[in-house]
Structure formats: C-alpha cells, structure tokens
C-alpha cells in the first residue's frame, strides 16, 4: 500500500485507478524490494514522499509517471517535426549556401591574398597600424603552426553568422524600440535564448535538420549570438536624447527621416557594442557547434577531449583565444572611432 492511496479513495477514483492496473515493467527499486521479500509497511511521517507524479503513480497506476512527460514531449516534437521541416528547410537553405560558400571561398583563395585582404579590412575599420601589425603577426603565427585552415574556417563561419545576426537583429531591435507591446513579448524570448545552455539548442536542431548540413550549426550559432545585437539596438534607440527627437518632430521630419538620420546614427555606439558582443558569442558557440560537425578550431579542441590529445587541444584553444582577441580589438577600436565622432 502506497502513501497516497487515501487521496484517490477519498476522491472516489479507485475504479479509474484499477483500470490502469498492469503487470508492466517494474522499477529497479521495486524489483529489489520484491526479491528481498520486503513487504510494504506504513511509512512514518518522516518518510512521506513529495506527492510527485511517480509517488502518485504508485498509489494509482492510471496516474502518469514522470517519464511519460519527457516521452510525451519527445513524441509531440517528433509528430510535428515533418511538417516543421517542410516549412523550415527551404527557409534556412540559404544559410547552408552562405556557410558552404564562405568556407569554400576562404579556403580556395590562396593565403597570400586572404591575409593581406584581412589586414586591409582591419586598417579600413580601425585606422590603426598598430592593430594591423598585431593581427598580421597573430595570423602568421597561426599559419606557421599549420592552423591556418582551421582558423580561416572558424573565421568564415563567424563572419557569415555575425553578418546574418546583424541583418536580422537590427531590424528586430528597431521594431522593439517602436512598440512597447512587441518589447514585452520579445524580452522573455531573448532571456530564454540567453540563459538556455548552448548544448540544449542543439538537441531539437539535431532532430530537425540533418547533421551533415551546415545550417544546423549556423542556426545554433545565430540563435545564441543574435541576442545582444537585438537588445542593444532596442536600448540604443530608446536612449536617444528625447530633446533631439522632439526637435526632429518640430521640424517636420517623417518617421523614416527620423529613423535613418537621427535615431540610428545616434544609437550607433550601442548597436556597435551589440555587434561586438554578437561576434564574441558566435566565437564561443562555433567551438561548441563542432559537436554537430562545424569545422574549424573547435574540431581540434574536440579531438583533444575525445582522444585525450592534450597538446592538440591546448594549441587549438590558444588559437581560439588569439582569434577572440583579434575580433574583440578590431570591433572595439571601430566602436571607439564612432564614439569619438559623436561626443555630446
């Protein structure tokens, strides 16, 4: 006799309970108890179990066990999976093309074009020769220890994902800044995306997409990294000086003029801070995404863990740190340039 028998008999549900009586598989605990020949005795008040699904199931076998919950969730997901795929597959297909294309271009172009090109971009956005020299030395060092290809793969993935994050995130942020209702609905989603452990994203994605497709890790990275750029675009536009907005209204600006000529330019420092965060988070995720076949330095780290190759893992980790420092410095420096041009 189980602790909560009383509850069901009081509610007059004994009939319903007995319908579910089966000689189904027993839990290991029950099995042990049976073999030891222990009979169930009345439990003392100190040992009353919490009325959890399993405890209630013991009293009434029609009551679902908690494993039914996870099972139900899984079945539910699997049943909508196919229809979801029909809709999501074509929608996300371009992501695969972008990623594959970027990886192909990055690796097919000879190093003596890619490295100078990267340095030229660094010079263009930061106007700092010191930083160009630092980036040059770092990349050459990586190439010298034969990590060039891996590093470029990682960079290519980050470029594509961060670009798409900005492309999607900035308009979402702008929309949020204009509607309090939208903000109220979006913020919990953003909070969830930010707090959900990255590994958890991967589980439903693996079910939805084939592991061989690059969009699988692309989506994981974008979902994880898009949050800061949305948040900071929203915040940046909301923080634009109300006096300036009022002046824009008083001189008869249209909403479009106000957005492009006042709000976005004035929110740019915040938006760029969001872009910086987004790039750093895509780098963090690209390593984890190597679990689902994302190429790059993460693969080496994974190899280090799987095969206990300490050296391989450590060197790849160091490479990631170098990439992180490069990306961070370059975006921070361009952010500083924007800030300097619009002090108040």
């Amino acid at each position: 006799m189980a602790t909560y028998d009383v509850v069901f008999s009081k509610l007059g549900l004994e009939d319903w309970c007995s319908q579910g009586e089966t000689s189904g598989p027993l839990s290991m605990k029950d099995l042990l108890a049976r073999t030891r020949g222990e009979s169930e005795t009345d439990t003392s008040i100190w040992e009353v179990p919490f009325p959890s699904m399993d405890a209630l199931n013991e009293a009434c076998s029609s009551f679902p066990q908690s494993r039914e919950l996870t099972k139900g969730l899984e079945n539910g997901f699997l049943s909508i999976k196919d229809s979801l795929s029909i809709f999501l597959d074509p929608l996300t297909q371009p992501l695969s093309w972008f990623l594959d294309g970027a990886l192909h271009v990055m690796l097919a172009t000879p190093w003596w074009i890619v490295i100078p090109l990267l340095l030229a971009v660094v010079q263009l956005v930061t106007k700092s020769w010191k930083l160009v020299a630092f980036v040059g030395i770092s990349i050459c060092a990586l190439a010298f220890i034969d990590h060039y290809e891996y590093a470029m793969q990682t960079l290519a993935i980050i470029f594509v994902c961060a670009f798409l994050c900005v492309l999607l995130g900035v308009p979402i942020g702008i929309a949020m800044s204009r509607s309090d209702t939208l903000q109220r609905f979006t913020i919990p989603v953003l909070d969830m995306l930010q707090t959900l452990p990255p590994f958890v994203y991967l589980i439903p994605l693996i079910f939805l997409f084939s592991v061989t497709e690059s969009k699988l890790y692309g989506i994981a990275i974008i979902l994880y990294a898009i949050v800061p750029v949305i948040r900071l675009t929203n915040l940046g536009i909301r923080l634009v000086d109300q006096d300036v907005i009022e002046a824009a209204d008083a001189f008869g600006m249209t909403d479009r003029q106000k957005l492009y000529r006042v709000q976005i330019p004035l929110a740019l420092p915040n938006i760029m801070a969001g872009v910086n965060q987004t790039i750093m988070m895509s780098l963090a995720m690209v390593v984890i995404a190597s679990l689902v076949s994302a190429p790059g330095l993460g693969v080496l780290v994974l190899r280090g863990i799987r095969n206990l190759e300490l050296g391989v893992g450590l060197v790849a980790g160091l490479g990631i740190v170098i990439l992180a420092v490069i990306l961070d410095r370059v975006t921070k420096m361009s952010l500083a340039r924007i800030n300097a041009s619009q002090k108040n």
Binding site: D243, V244, A247, A250, S341, K343, N344
Partner: peptide, 10 residues
C-alpha cells in the same frame, strides 16, 4: 528653438 539646443551631435 529649444532650451537644451537639441542639435544633432553627429
């Protein structure tokens, strides 16, 4: 004309 000028800083 505004008290706090309200010029566009950029």
């Amino acid at each position: 004309v505004f008290q706090k000028f309200a010029l566009l800083p950029h």
